[in-house]
C-alpha cells in the first residue's frame, strides 16, 4: 500500500528504506530570534556526595544553536534535565530571559535519544501529546502541520511500531515542535540512528531551527555533527566548561572543509585533554 502513496520509495543495498532528502525543500529562513535567552550562574548538581556539575556559568543568547559535547558521564544529560525542569539544581541558578532581558517562563521541550512514543497511540496522537489539553479542531490542524514539517503527514494514523527508527525520531521531533517551543533541548537525538539516516536528520533539525529560531541545546557525542550544526560548541569535562568556541560558517555548511576539520581537532583535543 505504501508503494502507491509514496511511489519513489528508495531502498539501500540491504533493502532498508532510505529516509527522504529533507534539504531538498527550500528553507523559509527566519532571521529574527524567537527563542528565550538562558543564563546559568554557578549551576551545580550533586547526587548525594557525587558532584556531577561543578559551577557552570553560561549565557545562551535567544535563538542560538548551542552544541554540548563531552565524554560519556561528564554531565551533559544532567545539564539538560536541569534546564527542562526534570531535576532541581543543588547550587547556582538558571534564568530564562525574554527580549527585554526580563525573567520569563520558557515553553521548553526535550527530545531524548529514544523516541519515547506511546506505542498504544497513533502517530498523530503521539504528536498531540505535545499540545497538552486543549481545543480539538485546532489540535488536528497543528498536529498535521507538525507532521508535515517532518514529512510524515501520510503516517498520521499509523502505529509507532510500524515505523522505522528514523521515522520514529521524526515523530518525536514533531511532538516537541508542535507547541512552538522557544527552547528545545535535544539529548543525543540522533545517537541511535544509522549514519545515512543521521545525515538527513541533521538537515531536518537544522532546517526547522532556521525556520523557527528557537534556542536549541543539542547534546551530541559526534564532534563533526556539532560543528556542522551549531553556532557555538561547548566542551564539558568533569562538570565544568573547558572550551567554548563560536562557529560562524555559512549555512548550510559543507562538510569536511579544512577549517571545520581543524575545529573538530581542537574540540577532540579538549575532550580528551
Amino acid at each position: 500500500m505504501s508503494e502507491i502513496i509514496n511511489p519513489v520509495r528508495k531502498t539501500n543495498a540491504w533493502g532498508k528504506e532510505i529516509e527522504p532528502e529533507f534539504a531538498a525543500r527550500p528553507v523559509r529562513e527566519r532571521h529574527e530570534a524567537r527563542g528565550v535567552g538562558i543564563r546559568l550562574t554557578g549551576v551545580a548538581k550533586a547526587f548525594g556526595d557525587v558532584s556531577v556539575l561543578r559551577g557552570i556559568d553560561l549565557d545562551v543568547p535567544a535563538g542560538q544553536f548551542l552544541a554540548i559535547v563531552g565524554k560519556s558521564g561528564c554531565g551533559k544529560s544532567t545539564l539538560l534535565r536541569l534546564l527542562v525542569g526534570l531535576d532541581e539544581v543543588t547550587g547556582g541558578s538558571i534564568a530564562f530571559l525574554d527580549e527585554s532581558g526580563a525573567e520569563t517562563r520558557p515553553n521548553a521541550r526535550i527530545v531524548f535519544q529514544e523516541p519515547r512514543l506511546l506505542p498504544w497511540d497513533s502517530v498523530g496522537g503521539n504528536v498531540a501529546v505535545g499540545l497538552g489539553e486543549g481545543g480539538r479542531a485546532e489540535r488536528v490542524a497543528r498536529v498535521t502541520a507538525a507532521l508535515n514539517e517532518v514529512q510524515l503527514t501520510e503516517k498520521a494514523k499509523e502505529w509507532p511500531a510500524r515505523l522505522s527508527g528514523g521515522q520514529r525520531q521524526r515523530v518525536a521531533l514533531a511532538r516537541a515542535l508542535v507547541s512552538r517551543p522557544d527552547f528545545l533541548a535535544l539529548d543525543e537525538p540522533l545517537g541511535a540512528l544509522d549514519a545515512l539516516t543521521r545525515i538527513t536528520m541533521q538537515s531536518l533539525v537544522e532546517r526547522v531551527w532556521r525556520e523557527q529560531r528557537f534556542t536549541a541545546l543539542f547534546v551530541t557525542h559526534d564532534v563533526a555533527e556539532a560543528v556542522a550544526l551549531a553556532d557555538r560548541v561547548i566542551v564539558l569535562d568533569e562538570g565544568r566548561i573547558v572550551l567554548d568556541v563560536t562557529v560562524d560558517h555559512e549555512r548550510p555548511r559543507e562538510r569536511g572543509t579544512a577549517d571545520l576539520a581543524e575545529l573538530e581537532g581542537r574540540l577532540l583535543k579538549a575532550i580528551f585533554a
Binding site: L86, I110, F112, R116, L118, V129, G132, E133, R175
Partner: peptide, 16 residues
C-alpha cells in the same frame, strides 16, 4: 519509566 518521564515533561500528571 522512560514513557512516564516523557509524560511528565509534556505536562501530564494525575489522571491524564
Amino acid at each position: 519509566p522512560q514513557l512516564i518521564e516523557m509524560g511528565r515533561v509534556y505536562g501530564m500528571s494525575g489522571w491524564t
